[in-house]
């Protein structure tokens, strides 16, 4: 399992609903954290953290996934590969074995099952992994290739790179929205999950789903209510009833929205510094 001793603590910033402010909070926390951190953007479908942190990127690396290629000379059309494949990647069509590499999940079942050694390793580009620095912090991000359907393999590459760069530092992970495989991949093996929501029926509905999904990990969770002052009280009532601590409230403020739209880091604004400092202290307290 992924959990080398080199990393101090892993904080995952997640949400059910998109656009609640995950990236804004991740950028802000990394900016005011009292020790150097390793920041990882694993929302590889739509990575945004770099837009706010302006990292100094040292290297970009294309990431590939191993996919089957048929050696037609060795293949005797027995169909064992096509039978084991659960994802309809391989089909026997007439006198030829045809591969649809875009649909391959990388289970390697066809390689293992072929009696004729007729499958060779090909590759499919899934995206680009980039890493570098933001001041004292290490920074890692991934960018899914347009047209690529599967994000978890690239997310795992980002997390592995982050592990190797963390070097005794805490890790702040900006997760993708939702409650299905990509979000679960990000939240697995974390020490604390910070759920960002907004006080509306949409925010509540998706917060509930996220809590239900992430509770399998048995990790402590806390909530940030973003844009407080709009909407209704249902998110607060739910948190209260479910013993989910609200760690911070960030008021709805048109000036904040405008600063965000200019790409500014909110915790660098004097009026919001304290909110984020306090939030960081509460999170650290919970993780240790």
């Amino acid at each position: 399992m992924r959990k080398p001793l080199k990393i101090k603590k892993r904080l995952v910033i997640a949400s059910g609903k998109g656009g609640t402010g995950k990236t804004m909070i991740s950028a802000s926390l990394s900016h005011i954290w009292d020790s150097p951190v390793c920041v990882a953007d694993v929302d590889v479908e739509e990575p945004n953290l770099h837009l706010f942190l302006n990292p100094d990127i040292q290297e970009d690396k294309k990431i590939f996934m191993k996919v089957p290629v048929i050696n037609q000379e060795k293949c005797n059309l027995c169909g064992a590969c096509s039978d084991i494949c659960q994802f309809n990647v391989i089909a026997i069509m007439g006198k030829k074995t045809v591969i649809f590499p875009e649909m391959c999940h990388g289970c390697d079942g066809c390689f293992a099952v072929c009696p004729n050694d007729a499958i060779i390793a090909g590759k499919r580009e899934i995206g680009v992994l980039s890493w570098g620095n933001v001041d004292k912090n290490a920074f890692v991000t991934g960018c899914l290739r347009i047209g690529e359907a599967m994000s978890p393999p690239l997310m795992k590459a980002v997390l592995e790179k982050a592990d190797s760069l963390a070097n005794g530092r805490d890790m702040i992970i900006d997760a993708p929205p939702g409650t299905s495989c990509p979000a679960m991949t990000a939240a697995a093996s974390s020490d604390f999950i910070l759920l960002v929501t907004e006080p509306t029926p949409f925010g509540l509905n998706d917060l509930r789903l996220a809590v239900e999904a992430f509770s399998v990990f048995g990790v402590k969770m806390g909530v940030v209510v973003n844009r407080s002052g709009i909407g209704d009280r249902s998110v607060y009532e739910y948190c209260n009833k479910s013993n989910l601590p609200i760690f911070a409230e960030i008021p709805f403020d048109i000036n904040l929205a405008k600063a965000y739209s200019r790409g500014e880091i909110i915790s660098s604004l004097p009026e919001y510094k304290t909110v984020f400092k306090d939030l960081a202290v509460r999170i650290k307290h919970c993780m240790n």
Binding site: G18, G19, E45, E46, L144, I146, G147, E148, A149, M150, S151, P176, P177, G178, S180, P182
Partner: peptide, 10 residues
């Protein structure tokens, strides 16, 4: 639709 550009969006 859903956010992102991955499997569900495709």
């Amino acid at each position: 639709g859903s956010p992102g550009i991955g499997c569900p969006v495709i």
